[in-house]
Simulated scan of single mutants.
Amino acid sequence: MTNIYTMSFASVYPHYVTKAEKKGRTKTEVDEIIRWLTGYTQLELELQLEKQTDFETFFAEAPQLNPSRILIKGVVCGIRVEDIEEPTMKEIRYMDKLIDELAKGKTMEKILRKTKKY
């Protein structure tokens, strides 16, 4: 079995896009989610994909992990995201959960945990 940490992010990225597009969503939305989660700019994200950066490095080098990501709750692959202890695995599962929400038709505002201003 392949270790997810050493897998290149670029090898999984097309699956995120395909999953979203099958449900009528876009690559642009997938990229927006990844940028929101990691703080990468679009150019930085594309460079990470080009460099075939592994997951561990992808998250370790993320410019600014979004503090609102702790609001991401739920189950991915049968495991509660909020119960995952290992930091890199938690980040990977946060991303999986956000892509799942996109594919399930949630609005970008909800996916990106935008709070309403009253």
Rank of each mutant, 00 (worst) to 15 (best):
M1E: 04
M1C: 00
T2D: 15
T2H: 12
T2C: 04
N3Y: 06
N3H: 12
I4L: 15
I4A: 09
Y5S: 04
Y5V: 12
T6V: 03
T6Y: 05
S8D: 12
A10P: 10
V12F: 11
V12G: 00
Y13V: 01
Y13T: 14
H15V: 15
H15C: 10
V17M: 09
K19F: 10
A20L: 14
E21V: 04
E21F: 02
K22G: 09
K23S: 15
G24R: 02
R25I: 11
R25V: 07
T26G: 02
T26K: 03
T28N: 03
V30H: 08
V30A: 04
E32H: 03
I33K: 02
R35F: 00
W36V: 02
W36T: 04
W36P: 05
L37Q: 10
L37M: 14
L37E: 14
Y40Q: 00
T41I: 09
T41K: 01
T41V: 08
L43H: 05
E44F: 01
L45G: 00
E46Q: 06
L47W: 01
Q48G: 12
E50C: 05
Q52P: 03
Q52T: 04
T53E: 13
D54P: 07
D54C: 07
D54I: 08
D54A: 00
F55V: 06
E56F: 00
E56W: 02
E56K: 00
E56S: 10
T57V: 07
F59A: 07
A60Y: 00
A60L: 11
E61K: 03
P63R: 01
P63N: 03
P63F: 01
Q64Y: 13
L65F: 08
L65Y: 05
P67A: 14
R69V: 14
I70A: 09
L71M: 13
I72F: 08
I72T: 13
I72N: 10
I72G: 06
K73G: 10
K73P: 03
G74R: 15
C77D: 07
I79C: 12
R80C: 07
V81H: 08
V81T: 14
E82G: 07
E82Q: 15
D83I: 13
I84Y: 03
I84W: 01
E85D: 14
E85I: 06
E86A: 07
P87I: 09
P87V: 15
P87D: 11
M89A: 13
K90D: 04
K90G: 05
K90Y: 10
E91P: 05
I92T: 08
I92W: 11
I92E: 03
I92N: 05
Y94V: 07
Y94F: 09
D96G: 02
D96C: 11
D96A: 04
L98A: 14
L98T: 10
I99L: 03
I99N: 02
D100P: 08
E101G: 08
E101A: 12
L102E: 00
A103T: 01
K104I: 04
G105L: 03
G105S: 13
G105M: 09
G105A: 10
G105H: 06
K106L: 13
K106I: 07
E109N: 12
K110G: 11
I111A: 11
R113K: 15
R113G: 06
K114M: 13
K114R: 14
K116D: 10
K116W: 12
K117D: 12
Y118I: 11
Y118G: 13
